[in-house]
Design a protein around this nucleic acid. Structure first.
Lengths: 252, 252
DNA sequence: GCATTTTTTGCCCGTTCTTGCAAGAAAAGT
DNA sequence: ACTTTTCTTGCAAGAACGGGCAAAAAATGC
């Protein structure tokens, strides 16, 4: 393989994914990481990418188009929450992950070197997971709801029913001690209920604005929450309530 | 063998593959590598190629077309194919769309103002379709295969079995008049067969390099093809063969 | 037909390019 | 403060390159 070929392939991936990992490129091209780093150095010198620790990202003008999946609202918070939530993962586990921007952040926060089996009905989560080489991904199909970014319906329920998971990362919901976990859509709530039923523990990561709010459709009681990941600024009284229901509190 | 003959063969391969290796050309032509290098030097001087260490690649204006088989030439050509294929759509139809870069291009080429119901097992196609407000999207879940970008397996087959479609846009396949439609993966072939069975007509859009090539796994006979969308430069003889099997030919 | 010239080709050799390895520096994580 | 990972630098082996040279082949002139 020509040096030039590698350069072209690196440019291609940069255009498609916005980032490249040195180690991954090395194994893909069948060369040493040193060679890849040399490639990256040259391309960086030519201004075609920007080097970062561990690889490279698309350079500024190009980056905006590819890397910006910014859900504009509380990006940093959700990334922090996502990293904390990812800390709960153990290699070899199987997971359900449903929709919501926090869960998409979680999918992006999963380290590349952890082996997992993940079933999700969220297209955003699924897309993010396609970058992870060690994750076995199961897509839960069904009728796609644009507003939710997830699949729901009978097909989805049937697919969930065939699976089990160690943890269920439940997203985009309201949380209230008395009303428990609530969803904004009836069909979505059904899917969440099915996932909750077939998983050993529920993990919820929420920003403060979701705490102590209730949505129309009930998913499960507050006592179903195994792990609750919250911001450091979350109101202590509310957390104490959830804790008394059996939830472990984790601060991001 | 004349010098000019070699030059032409080099140009040919450059057009087809985007690159040539000095050593390989030497053994193919039965001459020394020095002679090949001289050839390459001359062609480079004439601007017909760009020399690289170990051989040569197509020169800049042409290179975009060939070197990165997937990306650029692919994009332009496949976009043309996709637009032509999208011309076959009628409002209100229901479709199966499976994987492949051409089908992803198709998904992006679907006009925003046409109402459709689309079922796909390709995450790329699904993502592209989420932008279209009038498309009802059904995601066909299952085990995700990174190399294919699609979901396959029993779950996928079960989901397909419940649906029917007017047209099936079948992608990433080999096409050969005698061997018919062939796929590169066993599980993928199964899904394609199921989709073919449950749809009224098959549409295939292919670049020239897919024509007259066969992959290991057979999907269906050539007579199953209703519409065949090809480049203007596709070999007429091959097209005539498919036409005699009942396929309508459309030029992109 | 024969000699001469021109072109092409293969070989040799010093030079350049690429690559992987090793060792030390720098950065990130704990 | 420590460990781990990644990065840079220098170096050496191997591959590829260009120029020079001579033999072979083809074209040309006589």
């Amino acid at each position: 393989m020509f040096t030039e070929e590698r350069h072209q392939l690196i440019r291609d991936q940069l255009g498609a994914h916005g980032k490249v990992l040195a180690g991954e490129l090395a194994s893909r091209f069948g060369v040493s990481e040193d060679t890849v780093r040399r490639d990256l150095r040259e391309l960086a010198k030519a201004g075609q990418l920007r080097r970062v620790y561990g690889g490279a990202v698309a350079s500024a003008p190009f980056a905006a188009a590819t890397l910006s999946q910014r859900s504009r609202h509380a990006v940093e918070e959700k990334t922090r929450l996502a990293k904390a939530a990812a800390g709960l993962l153990v290699a070899g586990q199987s997971l359900f992950i449903d929709g919501g921007t926090t869960n998409e952040a979680l999918a992006r926060a999963i380290p590349r070197d952890i082996q997992l089996t993940v079933a999700t009905n969220s297209l955003g989560v699924a897309s993010a997971l396609t970058d992870l080489p060690l994750v076995e991904l199961i897509v839960l199909g069904g009728r796609y709801v644009p507003d939710l970014g997830t699949c729901v319906g009978a097909d989805t329920l049937a697919a969930v029913a065939q699976l089990g998971a160690d943890l269920f990362f439940l997203g985009s919901c309201g949380l209230d001690v008395s009303r428990g976990i609530t969803a904004f859509d009836s069909a979505e709530a059904e899917v969440k209920r099915a996932m909750a039923k077939n998983s050993a523990g529920i993990v919820i990561a929420v920003t403060n604005d979701k705490l102590a709010t209730a949505a129309p459709y009930r998913v499960a009681g507050a006592d179903a929450i195994r792990h609750l990941v919250v911001e450091k600024t979350a109101p202590a009284a509310t957390l104490a309530d959830f804790q008394s229901q059996g939830a472990q509190i984790h601060f991001a």
